[in-house]
């Protein structure tokens, strides 16, 4: 299964990014093959509106079934829920730390958005 982790870099040692919609990118990590790929989300950094929605689309297009990020707003949450992507809150320094925490079952699934929408 593929999991998406928000990051400012492009490999497993890159820093974990707390923001979701305006995260510079994602690492898509495959828990079976242990392979990963980097997905660019930088076009959303300066989006006037709807960054969370487009970031959610990027996660869905990459085929991830799980998102690990610091926060998730209401519109992104709605889109991900509709696409049956599970969202987990993490507090981590690097992508690999976030992945390990997820794999070992240390993260809690979010049942609702944890930050307000912003404009």
């Amino acid at each position: 299964m593929k999991i998406a982790v928000t990051t400012t870099g492009n490999d497993l040692n890159s820093p974990f990014e707390n923001r979701f919609g305006r995260a510079p990118g994602f690492i898509i990590y495959d828990t079976e093959t242990k392979q990963f790929e980097a997905v660019d989300n930088s076009m959303n950094l300066n989006a006037a509106q709807g960054a969370g929605i487009q970031a959610a689309m990027n996660v869905i297009k990459a085929g991830a079934k799980v998102l690990v990020s610091g926060h998730c707003g209401p519109k992104a949450f709605t889109v991900l829920k509709q696409a049956e992507v599970k969202i987990f809150n993490a507090n981590a320094a690097t992508v690999s730390e976030a992945v390990e925490k997820y794999v070992s079952g240390m993260l809690i699934e979010m049942k609702s958005a944890d930050v307000d929408g912003h404009w």
Partner: peptide
């Protein structure tokens, strides 16, 4: 251009506030 409609299968989702 305002990301108000999202599509990843049927049917598209509409975000009225956008």
């Amino acid at each position: 251009q305002f990301n108000a409609i999202v599509f990843f299968g049927s049917p598209p989702m509409v975000f009225n506030e956008l």
